[in-house]
């Protein structure tokens, strides 16, 4: 059995979501090769080669792979698929964009966002915003799988895999990259942060978000998240959204501030180790999942908290 794991990276650094998906791939069993599709991503390949349990690293270098556009990236993976029994990627926006395309081209029903490997063909995955967990068995000869990385620990280093170059597939040429508008931040990423503080609609404006959430995040070295309501209202950027249709996180500590706790939000954070909720409504559903609840006005509590930590 051989597995192709598609690396998540930005051409410069390997994302630790790859390490987590590697853990899932190793549990499926067999040799794991890591594919680095990109442009000038040698450093990423070097980092992937050091991961424990990797057989070899395949590097494809092409202009159209620089931003991992779906059409050429899927074509590349399909060109390599013959040698593999399973194709695995972390369920990042890139993985979600590319892998279903690969699955359809291989006539395979993808298994999305697995949270547990039961056996080589059987997996657990959440449905209905995590309100039910399905165990599914695939009858496809090849498996195409995305991994919910919050459910797996990161594979460590200690490997010394060989690195090989593979040719990019013919570019379908139907799409072009225009630009990235990425949030610049020195803070940890949501998906790898140990502490996350998230703000909801109650923050009321992006200025207030900045004024009361950011100082605590800085002090705790925390990543910042948000509810959909806060993102929709423009208080926070879209990539901060935690939830069913945003990011799924499982930090050591999750602090929900002025967030009611709709199921769609809980879907993204209820596997956090310790949950704190700060809300002025003592009936807010968020308190049903919180280890520590503090009832009160966030605008008085947060400045106090900032001083106390």
């Amino acid at each position: 059995m051989a597995i192709l794991l598609v690396a998540e990276h930005d051409n410069a650094t390997l994302s630790d979501q790859t390490n987590k998906a590697l853990t899932a791939a190793s549990q499926i069993g067999g040799d794991v090769d890591v594919l680095v599709a990109g442009k000038g991503a040698q450093a990423v390949a070097d980092a992937a080669a050091k991961l424990a349990g990797v057989r070899k690293v395949l590097v494809a270098d092409a202009d159209e792979l620089a931003e991992r556009l779906a059409e050429p990236t899927a074509a590349l993976i399909v060109s390599l698929a013959g040698g593999y029994d399973a194709i695995v990627a972390p369920a990042t926006t890139t993985g979600k964009n590319v892998l279903p395309r690969v699955a359809a081209l291989l006539d395979v029903m993808q298994i999305s966002e697995i949270t547990e490997v039961v056996s080589a063909d059987t997996f657990k995955r959440p449905i209905y915003a995590g309100n039910a967990i399905q165990t599914v068995q695939s009858s496809d000869a090849k498996k195409v799988i995305t991994v919910r990385t919050a459910s797996f620990s990161a594979a460590g280093e200690g490997g010394s895999a060989s690195i090989e170059t593979v040719a990019a597939a013919a570019n379908p040429g139907v799409s072009t990259f225009v630009e990235n508008k990425l949030s610049e931040s020195d803070r940890p990423e949501l998906t790898s942060a140990k502490i996350i503080i998230s703000g909801g609609r109650a923050l009321g404006s992006s200025e207030k978000f900045e004024e009361v959430i950011v100082p605590i995040a800085d002090k705790l070295g925390a990543a910042i998240g948000a509810s959909r309501a806060a993102v929709d209202a423009g208080y926070a950027p879209n990539d901060w959204q935690v939830g069913q249709t945003g990011k799924v996180v499982a930090p050591e500590l999750y602090i929900a501030v002025g967030i009611s706790g709709a199921i769609q939000h809980l879907a993204g954070m209820k596997d956090s180790k310790v949950i704190v909720a700060i809300n002025k409504d003592e009936e807010a559903p968020i308190f049903q999942v919180a280890d520590y609840g503090l009832v009160g006005d966030l605008f008085t509590i947060l400045p106090e908290l900032e001083k106390a930590v």
């Binding site: 298994i111 039910a132 068995q137 695939s138 496809d140 949950i275 520590y292 009832v295």
Partner: peptide, 19 residues
């Protein structure tokens, strides 16, 4: 192509304490 073997409740989480 996928056979659903089982559908179950997620592991629950109990409300903790109010500080």
């Amino acid at each position: 192509r996928l056979k659903v073997l089982k559908t179950e409740e997620p592991g629950g989480r109990k409300a903790g304490v109010k500080v």
